[in-house]
Design a protein around this nucleic acid. Structure first.
Lengths: 349, 349
DNA sequence: ATTAGCACTCGGGGTGCGAGAGTGCTAATA
DNA sequence: TATTAGCACTCTCGCACCCCGAGTGCTAAT
């Protein structure tokens, strides 16, 4: 099953079948391969090889006397070959220096992260015609820059958190305690001087630890402050950016309505996808999950191409494309890789 | 064409056809109406009436010798009758006091408006199985409460705006001017004392006016301050909440793939829907637009049910449902109406 | 004004057939 | 021994056909 077992011609034929099928979704026959891809052998020979490939589980026929289509394993072999060889043609119509310009565009948007990630998923999906996903920087990767606490309406407090990555978040806290603005300022100052440079999660852990420790002092200022901060920092930020559902329904792969329902269900279950991407957020380079390889039931008939983006050396988030298993893998890989690179660039100093 | 022209029995038959067709999407025949709805007359009579209704353009047959289905005009008449009569059965499975509890739930979420509106659209769509929409409070309706300006990284400024409605927005301004925190505080104080109670749009207008007037003084503090504020207040807030696309594909009305593409395109064109809802944001009570009545090309095969919500007497936003023309109108109206009421309640003091 | 009766129409589903595409196998070839 | 040509076979797809049933419109009777 190792691809080393395939001689060069067999590989070429597998390639031919996969690429042809990706190009248009019809089973590809021996005559066609022999004609279109000049491999210097006759349909009959190709038939023999195809029969072998089918035996190995890389190809399948929808029914006797139809051409072959790739199986998930066939795609896998194809993608492995792609990834281990030189970059291919992406098959997308992209200007030569699209991504250098695009990096500048993102750079200009870095002040509005959620806008930026919307832009990213839109671009991902509109160029590739697949579903674009992006996971913004993880909370355990965002670094505390400063916090401000404002008194607001009665005893409520508005907490505004700014991170080094430029993310700004706000939250209203209904603290039972009636602090005045001066006290709030003192608390904020304390946090700002004490915790600059830590990640949000680290600070949270420290604070929670302190709460436990200082229970006794429950009513003094510091412990109330800690309680406020703990609330302020618990931004349950389960957000994920998705776009391109509307392009994807036009793909021939989704001409069957049940397929559309599948993909709709998959997207509806955002938390599952979130979990998947989170798990992938420590991987290096481009990852491809093909059909049945997919850990999530809902995605078993789809493929996912992901890449992480970084701030310096730290991987802080993920972008991805979801499409049919019959996917333009070179193109998707190319897109995801370069978009991730663009994002990384906006995060470097 | 006026419904006064229809005698009681004719109305009843129209009602029967519409309701039956809404209940299950098959052309309804004379025999069926006569049996299921005890109108005390034979199929033949009903056939005659149906022929009349068809002549009037309220019913249509998909083909000769099929039953009748309602036309858009037929639905319109039905809905008009609904709206002018007592509230009907919603046809939804909702607890008696669902909405009183739901209002409490929203009340508890009012600190996080975007979370609240996500919740609203989710509820709208999951109960109705149509597409839920919500337009958050319009900027010309949100009242300035306070603003804070924080120095951030180099000469950038973080502006944080709190409105009376509890909306908090932030924005990074790349002001070329190098003000220190003290000066920023002074600017913020100035705004806070001067403009409390005005709406954002009003303040913007005033500021823009001043910019024009004080062009001469371009480089003094005040004019720079004004410029900053102008930027700070220009929250291009084109957000609209949508959900339920994933439920809607399961409706039999969208068993045809082209219909799904239609609806996907309609939603993709968010700005059009935004415009539509904005135009409706001054209407009173529940509005229904049926199929071809719709001003937006993309929605011509769908129906939209909307209602505004208020803060006191001011209408400040819109909620809506989009579904097939073959829609459970009583249910949709009931939902939209009550959800709007719930939202309004969270905005009253 | 309503109704029973009846002829008529049309869509959907089942069947049968022919064309075309592509295979697998066998025997011939280099 | 590897490749190829030839050929019979298989299966899908599209088309034509037909029949059944549902539902109508019309007419004549009540």
């Amino acid at each position: 099953m190792n691809r080393k077992m395939l001689d060069s011609r067999t590989k070429q034929i597998l390639f031919a079948v996969v690429q042809s099928y990706i190009g248009n979704p019809e089973p590809v026959g021996s005559r066609f391969v022999s004609k279109k891809y000049a491999l210097g052998c006759s349909p009959a020979t190709i038939r023999n090889v195809m029969a072998d490939l089918e035996e190995m589980g890389l190809l399948a026929q929808p029914h006797t006397s139809a051409g072959r289509i790739p199986t998930d394993i066939g795609y896998r072999m194809y993608v492995d070959m792609l990834l281990s060889s030189e970059p291919q043609q992406s098959g997308l119509d992209i200007e030569k220096d699209f991504f250098t310009e695009y990096a500048d565009k993102l750079e200009a948007m870095k002040n509005d992260l959620s806008g930026m990630f919307s832009e990213v998923t839109n671009t991902l999906s509109s160029i590739s015609n697949y579903i674009g996903l992006a996971l913004p920087p993880k909370p355990d990767c965002t670094t505390f820059n400063r916090i401000d606490l404002l008194k607001y309406r009665g005893d409520q407090i508005v907490a505004i958190l700014v991170t080094d990555e430029g993310v700004i978040k706000n939250r209203i806290i209904g603290s039972g305690s009636n602090l005045d603005q001066k006290e709030l300022n003192r608390i904020a100052d304390y946090l700002n001087t004490e915790y600059g440079g830590y990640t949000i999660d680290e600070i949270r852990d420290i604070l929670i630890y302190r709460i436990g420790k200082e229970k006794v002092l429950w009513d003094n200022l510091i412990s109330r402050a800690i309680k406020i901060c703990e609330q302020a920092l618990s931004f349950s930020d389960e957000d994920i950016f998705v776009s391109g559902f509307y392009d994807v329904v036009n793909l021939p792969d989704f001409s069957d309505i049940s397929r559309i329902k599948d993909i709709a269900r998959a997207i509806k279950e955002k938390h599952l996808i979130l979990k998947l991407l989170n798990e992938l957020s420590n991987t290096e380079g481009v990852q491809v999950m093909i059909g049945s390889e997919n850990p999530i039931e809902e995605l078993r008939k789809l493929s996912v191409v992901t890449s992480t983006y970084k701030e310096g050396d730290r991987k802080i988030g993920v972008v991805a494309l979801i499409g049919p298993t019959r996917m333009n893998y070179p193109g998707a890989i190319y897109m995801v890789e370069n978009i991730a690179r663009c994002i990384s660039r906006t995060f470097e100093r």
